[in-house]
């Protein structure tokens, strides 16, 4: 998994590439923990990632809770077929903003 970020004021975009699995999910969690303070709009770009296991969903759910608690929002962009399936099956497509 590779992560690249773009920050523009209170907006943060994280491009996720590769697979978010049990072994890589902590990396995503760490990056978000470091970058999230002060962020009001978080975009997670999944154009290059179609594999997010439950370990990754936990990170997304935690992040969503953090963002809502601080009055911000989170969007998942460029969600592919496999990831959309996972989100729909777990009902998380209606929780997160998905595009």
């Amino acid at each position: 998994m590779q992560l690249t970020t773009e920050k523009n004021g209170t907006e943060l975009t994280v491009h996720v590439s590769g697979e978010v699995n049990t072994q890589t999910a902590p990396e995503l969690a760490n990056l978000l923990n470091e970058e999230l303070p002060g962020v009001q709009a978080l975009m997670l770009d999944f154009a290059e990632c179609d594999y997010v296991s439950s370990a990754g969903l936990r990170v997304l759910l935690n992040t969503y809770k953090q963002m809502s608690a601080s009055g911000g929002f989170m969007n998942l962009d460029n969600v592919g077929e496999s990831l959309l399936d996972v989100l729909q099956n777990t009902g998380l497509d209606v929780v997160f903003g998905v595009q």
């Binding site: 439950s54 759910l61 809770k65 009902g91 998380l92 929780v95 997160f96």
Partner: peptide, 18 residues
């Protein structure tokens, strides 16, 4: 329960369901 809101969702328990 996959119909709960994001705030009510538990962090665990999704793996086997998936």
């Amino acid at each position: 329960d996959v119909t709960l809101s994001g705030e009510e969702r538990e962090i665990g328990g999704l793996g086997i369901y998936m």
